[in-house]
Design a binder for these strands. Structure first.
Lengths: 159, 159
DNA sequence: TTATAATATGAATAATATTCTAATTAAGTA
DNA sequence: TACTTAATTAGAATATTATTCATATTATAA
């Protein structure tokens, strides 16, 4: 169910590799690089989108440029029943929340949050998290420095 | 030093908002949406890239499509001296490692890793992490389900 | 082998990107 | 206010790319 039934060949992998590194690479360039006709590439890219292999195209924006300099991870224990993630969906709706993961062993979620500063974090926890029913406790970890932050997947080199 | 000295106006914000949601939106469309000339938009986008407000354009690929179904967070304690992240840079070089954060209070890093399955994770920890000098201990948290996973920032609506 | 489906090519056309000049706007200064 | 300068924008011209489609090729299975 979570496993996608898609068969990708090495040309698809090459396309994915290019697109993962620069989503604005145009068809003509990809075609040139792979020695194929642009129309063939276009066809494949559209199929990759349709099959939801490519989920979306994002511009990665510098958080500092928007004055969002504090990154935090919050472990949130809840009264959610296993398999029913009521609180998780509420957390997911918060714009400052970038990630919500249901984690094993702890009856809780790992949540990634980006705020302007510590005051912004406190504000979020008090005024937003504080209003969510079902949160039993939180444990917050502040990020001092991010050495790497990417979504890039390891793409096979052969079929 | 980490704070960027950039002044963005509300047109920039609108461009960023559009690009963050779909990095492949073309100039002509943005221009139409904002009621401006394509050349003006192009100019601004290039400037946003130059000023490193826009860092890169990524295609978000479905991990399941590449059979990378296990997401884990690993807390890694090291002998790294504060301010000197030797181990962190080694961790950052590992393709399966998507994120490396230096976290407060623990003399350690929070690392996000994507592997095919549990066996892949064990393999990575034994054969790759195991060979890195300076790792004192690790604590691994398995993600059962991801409810939200985005890099999108909150973009101000005014200047 | 033959039939069928999937994929690729290549050409034609539509749309977009890019460049450049002139016009406009904004901000600061005398 | 008038002037200067820098930044931004519009608009036109051209280069490049996207997209469509008919045909050809390739792959797969019966």
């Amino acid at each position: 169910m979570s496993k996608l039934e898609v068969s990708l060949d090495h040309i698809d992998y090459q396309i994915l590799r290019i697109m993962q590194n620069n989503a604005r690479t145009n068809n003509a360039d990809i075609a040139r690089e792979l020695g194929m006709a642009p129309s063939a590439i276009l066809e494949r890219v559209k199929k990759l989108e349709q099959k939801e292999v490519i989920l979306q195209y994002n511009a990665k924006i510098n958080p500092a440029a928007l004055d969002q300099n504090l990154l935090s991870f919050i472990f949130i224990k809840t009264s959610d029943i296993i398999g029913e993630q009521g609180v998780a969906y509420l957390l997911a709706e918060i714009p400052e929340v970038q990630e919500v993961h249901d984690i094993a062993g702890d009856d809780g979620y790992l949540v990634k949050v980006r705020t302007h500063d510590a005051a912004g974090l406190v504000d979020l926890m008090r005024n937003t998290l504080g209003k969510i029913e079902g949160i039993l406790s939180t444990r917050t970890t502040i990020v001092l420095q991010t050495v790497k932050e990417e979504q890039k997947l390891v793409i096979p080199s052969k079929d």
